[in-house]
Design a protein around this nucleic acid. Structure first.
Lengths: 226, 226
DNA sequence: GCATTATTTTGCGTATGCATTAAATGAGGC
DNA sequence: GCCTCATTTAATGCATACGCAAAATAATGC
């Protein structure tokens, strides 16, 4: 899982950034925990300098905060945070859906999107939640890409990363997301037919529902942070 | 204008970040220009280390990009970029307006908002475009604050910074924004009366109009970058 | 025994030097 | 005259070192 391959031509700072990100997502660095720069440096086998740069980057992405003399703190994500993040995702992905519908894509342009839907279908048929999650990610990423707004792309990516930590809750506690696929298909169809309003509203509804389910779940199960 | 006051207890990295930001906004560092780290270090009277950290931060905010051996490039903002940015602002500020309306604020909570509107009114009466711009900024910032979503707040701030560079175009070339104030008042009223849908749709319309005017202006005047 | 001060420890911010490597320059062949 | 390859130049990425300030610990007075 930890794909720590030595990509030759990228800086140690970048390697450090992705490595620390991985450590956070994998749960190796728990939310709320503190870590000294020197500790991370030793752990990743480099000096403090690239670690610091990585930490500055990750702080900008909202994954951690540097607290002088207390180490960097891995930021927890509360249910309220999750609601905020989902609201941003809802707004921006809906915008992407709308713009994608306006762009007049042909069927071949939507190949990746329909493929992702297909994979979600078969994943549901086999009750393979992990495969479903991967395909779902692909769907959303491709949708945003089709939206053609690079800043939306970037922000959505950032927010998705923060949600990813609660993935195992969304995956294994909630019921199999069957209705979800109807939504995906509807959004895709609206894009194909160029109905921007429908694409937007349908995706918005889809995301809002997902948000409600997740927040309810997290609060109900007593998670105050993830 | 260059408020380079020596705030005693903040790091040089942070000072460097704000200083470089100022240099960009003030036009001292022109869009598209390249600057060596050592040059910036000397200019700000510190070593390269804090400069590098500042540069990493600003790169994360989309203001510049580090291009190894070519120096940091101040990123230009094309009309297309401007459209993308305005679309993000539209989506997120509309969300904020909606949430603000749902929050059930009392009149006193909306004091800052109405105050900003008042200042815009008098600024228009006196044809003081600079004062209007300041009040307009305040209005939008306060609106987003009332939305109560910290991530929306952060992202909007970031995007607004990028727009700010084209401010002089929006300010002095376009006609006096009289209609703009009607919009602001309507949004404020919708929030007061708790009409979330109206608040959202009205603000969306307001922003989309602003976007169209600006993009048209920039393209028409032959600005390919700002 | 507790509070308060003195001392030590320790983590961070920054400066500096060096090795790496991309760009620039020059030499030589065509 | 122009293209190719070797050489030089120089900016960066990184490691290291050091001083300072905050936290932790010990010591002293009450």
């Amino acid at each position: 899982m930890t794909s720590a391959q030595m990509d030759k031509n990228q800086s140690n700072s970048q390697r450090a950034a992705t490595a620390i990100r991985e450590l956070i997502f994998s749960g190796d660095l728990l939310p709320g925990s503190d870590h000294l720069e020197s500790e991370l440096a030793e752990r990743l086998g480099m000096s403090r300098t690239p670690i610091r740069e990585a930490v500055v980057m990750l702080e900008g992405q909202g994954l951690l905060s540097v607290r002088p003399r207390k180490g960097v703190r891995i930021l927890p994500v509360s249910p309220d945070d999750m609601r905020d993040i989902y609201d941003v995702l809802t707004a921006l992905e809906s915008l992407a859906a709308e713009n994608a519908a306006k762009a007049g894509y042909k069927d071949e342009d939507l190949a990746d999107l329909t493929d992702a839907i297909k994979r979600m279908d078969s994943a549901i048929a086999e009750e393979d939640r992990h495969a479903w999650a991967l395909a779902d990610d692909d769907f959303h990423r491709e949708l945003v890409r089709l939206g053609g707004n690079s800043r939306v792309d970037e922000i959505v990516q950032r927010m998705s990363n923060q949600v990813r930590r609660a993935r195992w809750v969304t995956l294994f506690v909630r019921p199999l997301p069957i209705k979800s696929n109807e939504d995906h298909r509807a959004v895709c169809e609206a894009i194909r037919s160029g109905d921007a309003d429908l694409a937007r509203s349908r995706h918005q509804q889809h995301r809002q529902h997902a948000r409600d389910v997740l927040v309810q779940l997290l609060s109900g199960l007593g998670f105050n942070r993830v």
